[in-house]
């Protein structure tokens, strides 16, 4: 199938190879702040935004509850694994991490079940509602989630003497998860499932008439996106060392949407690009405009992207590449004919 062979035949491999080498080499020329606070956090938020890209960009389902899934995965990790929570089961990470991801994925499937029969703005409203419900659920439930204070002491494991809380090892764990998630999504959107998902996005009625159970397809997509967000959520819990209701708050939910839109929803790399821009703005724009006006600046960037490039920064990149390809070569005139020098005649 041509849609499957695109990636194999394309020169994108060169781009991917150089990108991967740069990401692997990044800790060797960046300090710990840039490795941990910028690099690792961008990869984590990029993964959560990737889950939204899959849902919204390829499935046409704009879900605001992806951060809720990530946050819940963090809570489940704190409850199952090693943390300061008195109610924690203190299970080994090899059990606690998969258990947290699976449980959060089941929650994502349930959220999907609630929202898949809606379209457009109604999907946004339902996922916003379940996201807000999740926030109040963890904030008001003191027995399990410790209310406003949340759960702390969530630390990554130490494996073969390597403490994964250290910036560089943690960066590489985040990078490995992000690369695997990215490759999985790229493969998924070219698979029969992914082609059908894009068909359902474009024309659900037609897909039903081709024999597809579109609601089941959408719920499974929510589950897959949930697993991606949950993996990001586990890493985020390790990154912060704690989980609290703020992680699943409306601000955090909107941030993921902003990240995905700034990067671009029509390519899996968009979430990661958006996350880098967002984290850089979050860390350095405060020095320029002050902490009170950080959101104003993010809002302005969001506004400009939506107005001038609805496909995000990836869309800007594509436009520049297309412009460069279409630009006539120096040796050609405006009609595309080769210019013959007088001396050549």
């Amino acid at each position: 199938m041509d849609i499957f062979s695109q990636i194999r035949n394309s020169s994108q491999w060169v781009f991917y190879l150089f990108g991967l080498i740069a990401l692997l080499a990044y800790p060797s020329f960046a300090n710990n702040f840039f490795v941990f606070q910028i690099g690792a956090l961008s990869l984590i938020l990029g993964m959560i935004a990737l889950s939204l890209t899959l849902l919204a960009g390829y499935g046409g389902m704009v879900s605001l509850s992806q951060m809720s899934i990530a946050g819940l995965a963090g809570y489940f990790l704190a409850l199952f694994g090693e943390s300061n929570a008195v109610q924690s089961l203190q299970l080994a990470p090899i059990i606690a991490v998969p258990a947290a991801i699976i449980l959060a994925t089941l929650v994502a499937s349930f959220f999907g079940l609630l929202s898949v029969r809606t379209e457009g703005v109604y999907t946004i409203m339902i996922t916003l509602a379940v996201g807000v419900a999740t926030f109040y659920f963890v904030q008001q439930n003191y027995v399990i989630f410790n209310g406003f204070q949340g759960l702390s002491g969530i630390l990554p494991p130490t494996v073969f003497g390597t403490n994964f809380k250290d910036p560089v090892p943690f960066y590489y764990v985040s990078l490995m998860c992000a690369v695997l998630a990215y490759v999985f999504v790229v493969s998924l959107i070219r698979s029969p499932f992914g082609v059908a998902l894009q068909g359902i996005r474009d024309n659900p009625r037609r897909m039903k008439a081709l024999g597809y159970n579109i609601f089941l397809h959408r719920i499974v997509t929510h589950s897959i996106a949930g697993a991606l967000a949950a993996t990001g959520g586990v890493l985020l819990a390790w990154f912060n060392g704690f989980v609290s209701p703020g992680i699943v708050g409306v601000d955090a939910m909107i941030n993921i949407l902003i990240i995905a839109v700034i990067g671009g929803l029509n390519h899996p790399i968009g979430g990661f690009v958006g996350a880098v821009i967002f984290i850089l703005l979050q860390n350095f724009a405060i020095d320029l405009v002050g902490s009170d006006r950080f959101r104003l600046l993010v809002g302005c960037v969001f506004f400009l992207i939506v107005i001038f490039s609805p496909n995000g920064l990836i869309g800007v990149g594509s436009k520049i590449l297309n412009w460069a390809k279409k630009r006539p070569k120096a040796s050609e005139d405006k009609m595309g004919m080769e210019v013959i020098k007088v001396d050549d005649v």
Partner: peptide, 23 residues
């Protein structure tokens, strides 16, 4: 989508493997 992908979507629609996540 291309003609081929349209037909492919139709061919897979009635098959059990329509949910397959690998190319």
């Amino acid at each position: 989508l291309t003609v081929r992908d349209n037909i492919f979507a139709a061919v897979r629609g009635i098959k059990a493997g329509r949910m397959k996540v690998l190319p």
